[in-house]
Design a protein around this nucleic acid. Sequence first.
DNA 1: CCGGTAAACGAAGCATACTCCCTAAATAAA
DNA 2: TTTATTTAGGGAGTATGCTTCGTTTACCGG
Lengths: 172, 172
Amino acid sequence: MNEQNPLDDNKAPRSGKVKSRKYRELWNRPGYLIRRLHQIHVGLFVEECGGEDITPVQFGMLSVLQGGEEMDQLTLSTSVGVDRTSGADVIRRLERRGLLVRTPSERDRRAKLIRITEAGVAYVKRVRPMMARAQERFVEPLTDTEREEFYRLINKMVDANNTASRAPMGAI
Amino acid sequence: MNEQNPLDDNKAPRSGKVKSRKYRELWNRPGYLIRRLHQIHVGLFVEECGGEDITPVQFGMLSVLQGGEEMDQLTLSTSVGVDRTSGADVIRRLERRGLLVRTPSERDRRAKLIRITEAGVAYVKRVRPMMARAQERFVEPLTDTEREEFYRLINKMVDANNTASRAPMGAI
DNA sequence: CCGGTAAACGAAGCATACTCCCTAAATAAA
DNA sequence: TTTATTTAGGGAGTATGCTTCGTTTACCGG
């Protein structure tokens, strides 16, 4: 690719950096690497889903709804791990495309109940293999053993830091 | 550096049906977990940086500039792993706060050269410990051994999938 | 029943992170 | 030298993921 890739540099000067300088270089910061990894996953997802015009969060919401269950916007948003207002935007876009419907609840007139449409169900069925291919490609560089370890470590961090996120995962 | 090694037994997809069930639940999808982990890191960063009004990418840019080197917007953007236009937005915000300056290059009149200001240098020095604490908290749930393994696996994935991101490091 | 609190949502605003399309300038090719 | 291509940047548009503030509704203690 390119020889001025900073990631390539991290092979060279990993010398006797002291503890206090541990995070001096960008590519030694776990948060930075996670951000890059997230970017990479979104890139793979978009690439595999070709012209389907779908994003990971949108597909996540449709996945949760795929069973046919109705839920309000807050429940749906937290179940995919996004903020209430961010979720509302995503839901609006999916409604605009006819993949779900939003009807006022009769039990609680503050709430809007979300339900996937038939078009939504068909859409998920069609796109699911593409999503799966993106996930496969994402972990492809790792061996089976490494993948297991990777999942274990991520889950450990997510579990421990769940409340640190501003959109804690709802217990679905 | 790319591990397309056929000796790795990450075989091609086995049976389509099994594959599609593997990622059926959201919390079994690596991409979903990475997204959550990224959210968590941003949350920790913002929390540790208190009222400093700084984001990981902004701090990353200032870090790269901290040495005093001048560079154009594209070089700066790719060096922190963001897209050209996203980077331009970030740079504009940092310029607005007086943490860096943007001057037209004389060698290449298309380019704007970015240089950190004294205020920017002081700012980075002040905020760096907070950033470091956020990184520490992020990996705190892991043991030392697990951290090493975590870094190794992430780096392996980032290296292998570098071009998959829409903002490949050092490329484009 | 009534008043305070909490929940569900909406609107507006900001930051990241892309897309596509455009201009201008530098460089490579003819 | 003229032409073609590439490169740097800007502008507009979209999506995610937050913030704060405000409105309506539900619920609970007195």
